[in-house]
Each structure stands twice: as C-alpha cells, then as structure tokens.
Simulated assay, not measured.
Amino acid sequence: MTDPAILTIIVNWRTPGMTLKAAELALRAMKGLRGGIVIVDNNSGDGSFEHLSRAVAERGWDAEARVRVVQSGRNGGFGAGVNFGIRTGLASGEEPDFYYLLNSDAFPERDAIRVLCDFLLATPEAGFAGSFVRGADGEPHRTAFRFPSIASEFENGAMTGAISRMLERSVVAMPIPQGRGRVDWTAGASLMIRREVLDQVGTFDEAYFLYFEETDLCLRAARAGWSCYYVPESRVVHVGSVSTGLKSAERTPQYWFDSRLYYFIKNHGRLYATAATLAWIAGAGIWTVNRTLTRKPDRHRKGHMADLVSHALRQVIGRRGDGRGPARGALVEDRK
C-alpha cells in the first residue's frame, strides 16, 4: 500500500464553532493525503447541521466532496455517530484504508494525521494508532491506558500511595509514555484505525452512549490479534468534555455507570462485574478511612460511591437494564 485513502470522522453535538475549527485543522493536516472528511451531526437540534453545512459551502471545503456534513438523525452517542460516518464512507465510493477519528474539540497539528498513517503503514500488526494529546493550557493529557480490571477498580477506589504502587501495573491511566509503544487502548480524541480491524471485529458497539466504547473496541481487536500503539510524534490539542460537560459536572452522569457496568458484564461476565464493583467499594472504604485520618479533601466525585452502589443494586433487582447493554431510556435526560 503506497497511497492509502483516509476517512476523517468528526462527530458534532452542539459545538459547531469548535467542530469547524477541528475540521479546518484536519483539512490542513490532510493536505497531500487521499481521502476526505465527514462531519456527522448527531441530531443536535440547535441549528448545528444547517450552520455547519452553510459554513463548509461558504469556505469552499465541499469542492470535490473533500468535506461533507451529514445528519445522523439521532443522538446515539459517540460510537453511533462514528459508525454513521463509517457507513457514509468516502464520496468516491472507495473503501478507506484507514479511519481517523477526531473529537470536535480536538485540533491536530499539521502532520498529526500523516504521522499516524505512516506508522500504520510501517507496522502491519498495529490496528490502532493514537496521538499525544495536550490541553489548551499546554498540559499533557493521559491518553495511554490499560484495560480495566478488578485490580484497577480497587486501586481507583483506594487512591492511596502504597496501594497504587503495589498495583502500578494495573492502573488504567498509564504514565505518559516518552516514546512510541504498545498500550491496551488509547483515547478516541485522535485515533487512527485500520479498516481490516473493523472488517474483522465490527465497528463500535452502539450500546455504549459515551465512555468505554474505545476500550471495548480495542479489547475485541486485541483478542483477535491486533495491537494498539501510542505515537507521540502525532500531536493534538484537546479542550476536552465540551459536549458532555463531564469535567464540570457535580456528579458522574448515569450513562457513565451504564457503560462501565456493561463493559464488565459484556467482556468478563456478571460475576466479574460484581467483583469489580465490590473491589471499588472496598478501595473507597480504605480511602475514606485514610482521608478521615489525614483530613485530605475527597478526590472522588460527589456522591460517586452512593451512585455506583445504587446503580449496581438497580441492575440486580432488574430496574435498570437487562445486562445486554445500558438502559437506553436512562440516557435521555443525561445527554441533553
């Protein structure tokens, strides 16, 4: 493969201004590369689709269908929006060799896309390649991760130095790698995927509304023999949580708990999912004792333990979902 085709997919949810900036910089980064950009509006209902369509035409980006704006018709979440973009495909009808996912609030540097493409071309066993991501303030973001486990849930609940050191190889968020290397999974804010991976294991599981969808896809691919790599030479600025508002949210939204539980049940079974939840609660108990003795501020989001426990109990008594996916009705209010 000497001249691969790339389809860049940007999912918009009520962030048309940032989406246009992301598209502008992605278009610059696509210079000299075959392919195009598709902006998927996830039924924003705020005029985003019309605004984006008009702006793309006014800027001439739609020449030769280099940039297209499409309407998914529903807000099914990030994975559903990406899947819609994958099904939309390239305007030429040609199958892309690679899909490049870019968040609507992520801004790639000039060579960010080419670096990922060149890496995948040179690394046949790699199914995914993710970028180095920093915030608008210049601070690096942790985007190299391990798969969640019972041990990682215990560590995440405890957040205590001795336990974190003991379980350092299980902590989900890895220290920021200093160079290229294999990771379990990496963030979808700037992620290139080889088409053959999706042909083999399928696209995103749309039962996830937000969160854990990249984790699930990378796990399925890993089980099929594909690797995921962190490629820091590809650099992207990411504002983060603009559409979801999770950074500023007082409590963790329902859809996060839905996705977390579904991930564990789907990939490891109900018994493992129960053990993972109990491990987090046990760890949080240790943290509660520790902070009481040391008078440290609580590092967990407000009400997180109570919300986690009540969510698990609702699953047990059948009031929330059936274990085959997050309860879709529970997501309606959270995502507005």
Rank of each mutant, 00 (worst) to 15 (best):
residue 155 E to W: 05
residue 156 N to I: 05
residue 156 N to E: 15
residue 156 N to V: 04
residue 157 G to R: 02
residue 158 A to Y: 03
residue 158 A to L: 10
residue 160 T to A: 03
residue 160 T to G: 00
residue 160 T to K: 04
residue 161 G to H: 14
residue 161 G to M: 07
residue 161 G to F: 12
residue 162 A to S: 14
residue 165 R to Q: 07
residue 166 M to F: 13
residue 167 L to Q: 01
residue 167 L to P: 03
residue 169 R to L: 09
residue 170 S to W: 10
residue 171 V to T: 07
residue 174 M to A: 04
residue 176 I to M: 07
residue 177 P to N: 07
residue 177 P to G: 03
residue 177 P to Y: 04
residue 179 G to F: 04
residue 179 G to Q: 09
residue 182 R to M: 10
residue 182 R to D: 10
residue 183 V to A: 02
residue 183 V to P: 01
residue 184 D to Q: 06
residue 185 W to Q: 01
residue 185 W to S: 02
residue 186 T to G: 06
residue 187 A to L: 11
residue 189 A to V: 14
residue 189 A to W: 12
residue 190 S to D: 03
residue 190 S to W: 02
residue 193 I to V: 08
residue 193 I to H: 00
residue 196 E to Q: 15
residue 197 V to N: 01
residue 197 V to I: 00
residue 199 D to A: 11
residue 200 Q to V: 09
residue 201 V to I: 09
residue 201 V to W: 00
residue 202 G to I: 03
residue 202 G to K: 09
residue 205 D to R: 14
residue 206 E to W: 08
residue 206 E to I: 01
residue 206 E to F: 13
residue 206 E to H: 08
residue 208 Y to A: 00
residue 208 Y to T: 00
residue 208 Y to F: 14
residue 208 Y to L: 00
residue 209 F to H: 09
residue 211 Y to I: 10
residue 212 F to V: 04
residue 212 F to G: 05
residue 213 E to P: 06
residue 214 E to D: 14
residue 215 T to H: 13
residue 217 L to M: 07
residue 217 L to W: 06
residue 219 L to G: 00
residue 220 R to W: 08
residue 220 R to A: 13
residue 225 G to H: 13
residue 226 W to I: 03
residue 228 C to T: 05
residue 230 Y to F: 13
residue 231 V to F: 03
residue 233 E to H: 13
residue 235 R to T: 07
residue 238 H to K: 09
residue 238 H to V: 07
residue 239 V to P: 00
residue 239 V to L: 10
residue 240 G to P: 10
residue 240 G to T: 08
residue 244 T to R: 13
residue 245 G to N: 10
residue 246 L to W: 15
residue 250 E to D: 13
residue 251 R to W: 12
residue 251 R to H: 15
residue 252 T to D: 12
residue 252 T to P: 01
residue 254 Q to V: 11
residue 255 Y to V: 15
residue 255 Y to Q: 14
residue 257 F to K: 07
residue 259 S to D: 04
residue 259 S to C: 03
residue 261 L to A: 11
residue 262 Y to P: 05
residue 264 F to H: 05
residue 265 I to S: 00
residue 265 I to C: 06
residue 266 K to V: 02
residue 268 H to P: 02
residue 268 H to M: 09
